[in-house]
């Protein structure tokens, strides 16, 4: 909210024009701003109203309807949500999604913090930072295709390595127990570098004197990481955590290309189930109700984020 206050003083007194006996009469150049301003924001405003506000409201409305796409939606009250409450596939999807989010985000953040801290203390090489964000540049579809190949049970290089170390081959994407961990790993591979670079940028805002002081006080690298780096990084860490969680909750590309939700719904994440309800069974009302449920989860996380960030502000003050 502080963002709103950084602008120039509000122009509330301008419409009264030069006649108003205020300090600094509005420069004549600002008088005709109104029409031009509306013209300039028109495309964005139209996009905002037509493709963001309207569909959001319509999405809420559709959740309370029976809507089979080809016939107009019919109001059925909370029937979709009653059905949802008793739908074992939905509860399975929610469980699978949370499992994925916990594993994927947990690993991403831990590895990214470690990588950022190591980079920060060892090297400022742009080449290394460039290499680790390579996966960010490619699509989820590309990442999923490559890893499907590398994790192939018979021909994949990963199982070849497992065999070389004397292990048994693993059915990475084709077994119930390994499907979600494998997709989570691909997600980590794709997002680690990007997340680490954001955290690295956060680390660079910490003045080096902080570390000099730490060293003079006799603190080692590990001690400095936990006592200096982590606390100072917390605001940006909270932000990164929440962005990662929100992104992971909506995972679709990776699942769609690697397992299509299988085997036997073992990786049928929410977004996958929503998609198959809407475009497989043309049950848009039910799919909208699930989207609304996911929406509520994400809103809750966003609020949690604000709480976290605010808690940090007051702590530092």
């Amino acid at each position: 909210m502080t963002l709103l206050n950084t602008g120039p003083a509000p122009a509330r007194d301008l419409p009264t024009g030069p006649a108003a006996p205020r300090r600094r009469p509005a420069s004549p150049s600002h008088r005709g701003d109104g029409p031009l301003a509306w013209l300039l924001i028109a495309p964005a405003l139209i996009g905002f109203l037509v493709f963001a506000v309207y569909p959001t409201l319509r999405g809420v409305y559709l959740s309370f309807t029976e809507f089979r796409v080809l016939t107009p939606p019919k109001w059925i009250g909370i029937a979709n949500f009653q059905e949802l409450a008793g739908d074992p596939v939905f509860w399975n999807s929610l469980r699978v999604t949370v499992y994925f989010v916990v594993v994927a985000v947990g690993l991403t953040v831990i590895a990214a913090v470690t990588t950022a801290a190591v980079l920060h203390r060892l090297t400022s090489s742009t080449v290394i930072r460039g290499l680790i964000i390579l996966p960010f540049l490619i699509s989820g579809v590309v990442a999923a295709t490559v890893w499907s190949w590398m994790l192939d049970p018979q021909l994949g290089i990963v199982n070849a390595a497992v065999h070389a170390f004397g292990g048994d081959g693993v059915q990475f994407l084709t077994s119930r127990e390994w499907a979600i961990p494998s997709i989570a790993f691909i997600h980590v591979w794709k997002n680690l570098g990007y997340t680490a670079i954001i955290l690295f940028a956060g680390l660079q805002t910490i003045p080096p004197q902080v570390y000099e002081a730490g060293r003079i006080d006799g603190a080692g690298e590990t001690r400095m990481f936990f006592s200096l780096t982590l606390p100072l990084l917390r605001p940006i860490l909270a932000l990164v955590l929440v962005l990662n969680v929100i992104g992971a909750f909506q995972v679709f590309d990776l699942v769609s290309v690697t397992t299509k939700g299988g085997p036997a719904n073992a990786s049928n994440v929410l977004q996958m189930y929503i998609y198959s309800k809407a475009f497989g069974q043309f049950d848009f009302g039910y799919a909208s109700a699930m989207s609304l449920a996911l929406f509520a989860i994400l809103i809750a996380i966003t609020f949690l984020q604000m709480r976290l960030l605010r808690a940090n502000e007051s702590e530092q003050a």
């Binding site: 963002l3 709103l4 964005a44 905002f48 037509v50 493709f51 963001a52 309207y54 569909p55 959001t56 319509r58 999405g59 809420v60 559709l62 796409v69 929100i246 909506q250 929503i274 809407a278 848009f284 799919a287 909208s288 989207s291 609304l292 996911l294 929406f295 994400l298 809103i299 966003t302």
Partner: peptide, 21 residues
């Protein structure tokens, strides 16, 4: 302020209605 709110609200709900639109 309205635009800023759009930054906070996840777009997940817009996918299906936007398809219909």
């Amino acid at each position: 302020g309205l635009f800023l709110a759009a930054l906070m609200v996840p777009g997940i709900l817009t996918l299906l209605p936007n398809f219909v639109l």
